[in-house]
Design a protein around this nucleic acid. Sequence first.
DNA 1: CTGTTAGCGCGTTCAC
DNA 2: GTGAACGCGCTAACAG
Lengths: 348, 348
Amino acid sequence: MTNTPDSHGRAGSGKSPVTLQQIAELAGTSKSTVSRVVSNDPRISRATSDRVWAVMKKHGYRPNVFARALAGGKTGQIGVLTSNISSGFFAEVIRGIDLQTAASQNHLLVSIAHGGDDYARLFNELSLNGQVDGLVLVDPPLDLLGRDLESGHIPLVLCACAVPLEAESWRCVDSVTVDNQRAMHEIVEHLVGTGYRRLVHLAGPSSIYDAGQRKLAFLDAVQRHAGIVADVIENHLIRDDGSRTMRERYSDPDTWPDAIVAFNDSVACGVLADMHRVGRFVAVTGWDNGPETEVLGITSVEMPLTGLGEESARCLFDRIHGKVEQKAMGRTTMLENSLHIRSSSLKA
Amino acid sequence: MTNTPDSHGRAGSGKSPVTLQQIAELAGTSKSTVSRVVSNDPRISRATSDRVWAVMKKHGYRPNVFARALAGGKTGQIGVLTSNISSGFFAEVIRGIDLQTAASQNHLLVSIAHGGDDYARLFNELSLNGQVDGLVLVDPPLDLLGRDLESGHIPLVLCACAVPLEAESWRCVDSVTVDNQRAMHEIVEHLVGTGYRRLVHLAGPSSIYDAGQRKLAFLDAVQRHAGIVADVIENHLIRDDGSRTMRERYSDPDTWPDAIVAFNDSVACGVLADMHRVGRFVAVTGWDNGPETEVLGITSVEMPLTGLGEESARCLFDRIHGKVEQKAMGRTTMLENSLHIRSSSLKA
DNA sequence: CTGTTAGCGCGTTCAC
DNA sequence: GTGAACGCGCTAACAG
């Protein structure tokens, strides 16, 4: 399938690309026929098809995406809107989406919201200007889901987030998320099973969907066990948040809990740093299974990031291609995490 | 499916986007006038302009990107083609590019090559089908630069890579890269200054531009010092590569060098792991300054990833907007890294 | 099976 | 200053 240098040089050397019309003339046929050949219309005879393909190959014909979109109503582009999240998360999810879109000859339009109302602004633009056939909203700020969605929008899917039940206008939107509850239960079971009794969850910022889910799951999990003392401290996102809480809230090591369930790996690292400073062991778990967890032996949850992307794209295409009705109620897909138990949460 | 002339294609709960034509009628004027208003044509009277703007605002008019591209020749889209690189790298570079493109109302079309000839295939497609106004090639496989580039292509810029001097057909392509040489020299100076004499560089795969640069820089740097024993071992990319080399090549700790300059942080971690297994200290440096380096105290090089993206986009826009002639010879911009010296490379 | 005919929404000459 | 007309490259009815 690789291009032969000679035929290629000829094709591209002219400044303007070859058009369908020109192919038609060169092949001694009409535009429609060529158009049908391109789209594999079964009604075209094998002979004509082969002849036209030959001409197209020879001249390096490339259908013009814009003309096609204008006339056909399908853009061949999928939008991805994401907030300014951690690079590991972002990259892997995009990779997953790309895997699916590339497979169906689509292209990815990526936008990153840089704060404030940016997400909402970009959402409006992308969902209304007809530039994309569908839109994946990665980690949208929760307040966006509170707004009313205009009818007549393109297919939408929430990634790493789920539509709240009370959001009426978002009812046709699919959601793909990870099973925060199950993973959190596993963590708590593991900690309790190992013998820890006093647990603290350093929860994430309330603006993040997963943070809320994990907090609820933590509270739910600890309540299933008698004799467990549990507490939650909010708003932890980066390393410093973890260290600071340890310093300020637990300045006296004797008041420390047995185990700390951090919102993510960064926070867990912060806790560990302070722990070393003080020189007392406390069990710690992280979340994200980043590169630091393995080398440091931090128990952590690995999320199926690429899977999130792939599944989101799949949902989108199901609606774009009409395999799922546009007005069908949104489905929520939940992907499983895997818990990696390491030394940081075993017995001291 | 009922297809009225104006309920065209789009997934529709009835609400088809309002067109320039409709705005013209509602404003009691013609398409051309509205078009001029949109593009701030100075010949339009203030009165008409205001009137038309009001109508547009009232009806939420959005210019159709595809129609505009078809008629006007500018797509408003920038392509980003990247190989399947590490997520940290990928995400930050994209973020940088996005920063610039968003500022100029452009959109980002991202494609990820998934191996083999994928990069070349995608490159051909994106550079020829007119879907983007310019193309950023992030970390292209080196053999791509060996191929002849067709004339008449869109503006191109290499990111995290530089055009080889002998590539005639790529002479109009800009390059943005980091100063591998300077950073490597800093590392070597630091190691030698600290007292290490026998250095080994665990180089990266030869297919990666930066890997070759760093290897050359290493060899250059060590030659500037008398009494230094240096060696290079090739083809290290992930953790296991580092550990394996230590196990196989340096099974006897007494033959160990004083210091190991790893291609990246992962390799450095592999070395450290083996070091701990054997229980002997050797100085180690990484590259990328990933999350694991700070917590583990690994000396590492921080690259200006976002800067790479921003600068690449800037170069592209300079050519797209004609601030730099299309046929002007490509410039190479080199961005500075910063070396973070930590305990892993200090005296044992 | 294939050719003909309309547009898709907009930029850009031209005239007025 | 403004409007009418044409065309960008392609798809999708209609005819044969």
